[in-house]
């Protein structure tokens, strides 16, 4: 079993264990002794200064003069989603912005690729598409309303049961 951590869009299977000396990071078949002492990160003995902030499942790391965002996903959520579970029912905002058109309403049948909502962000228009065939359950924003990244824009009716 592994934890899932996304860097940008790439998902990594990661585990942290302990041995007699300290923590061990598992990445695939590789293992590294690791330690974090305040702002000193040690991986296999080599130290790097880091600044780290954790906000829920998001970990922000400043290292080598650059900041990175990592997102933790629990194995349960990951494997549920991987098996085609509820994640596909939720259509989220790819970036913050405001709504400029809502071509569908609750109850409409849509096919994968149909436009569910049109948003504007930094003068860019983006059509948010249906991830699968289905029926619209809710449209959560009206024209003119603004939202932040990852806001739940549209929900498709669950296909379970």
């Amino acid at each position: 079993m592994q934890h899932m951590i996304a860097i940008e869009d790439a998902l990594h299977r990661v585990w942290l264990s302990r041995d007699a000396q300290g923590y061990v990071l598992h990445l695939g078949a590789q293992q590294w002794p690791v330690a974090l002492d305040g702002t000193a990160l040690r991986v296999a003995g080599a130290a790097s200064p880091v600044t780290i902030a954790v906000d829920g499942d998001r970990v922000y790391v400043h290292i080598d003069g650059a900041a990175h965002e990592l997102v933790y996903q629990s194995p349960i959520a990951f494997h549920a989603a991987e098996a085609g579970g509820p994640a596909e029912d939720m259509v989220r905002a790819p970036m913050p912005g405001s709504v400029i058109a809502t071509p569908v309403t609750a109850g409409d049948s849509v096919a994968a690729g149909d436009t569910l909502i049109v948003i504007e962000s930094m003068k860019l228009e983006t059509a948010v598409k249906a991830p699968r065939d289905g029926v619209v359950e809710t449209v959560n924003f009206a024209v003119g309303q603004s939202f932040e990244r990852d806001a739940l824009l549209v929900t498709l009716a669950s296909q379970e049961g």
Binding site: H3, R18, L25, L41, V59, H68, L70
Partner: peptide, 24 residues
């Protein structure tokens, strides 16, 4: 190397992951 260090930093900072290691 960068990837490894980033994942190490995250793993060591996440309670869930540290707790799992410490529970053994």
């Amino acid at each position: 190397d960068q990837m490894t260090r980033l994942l190490a930093a995250a793993a060591l900072s996440l309670r869930t992951m540290r707790d799992a290691a410490d529970a053994v």
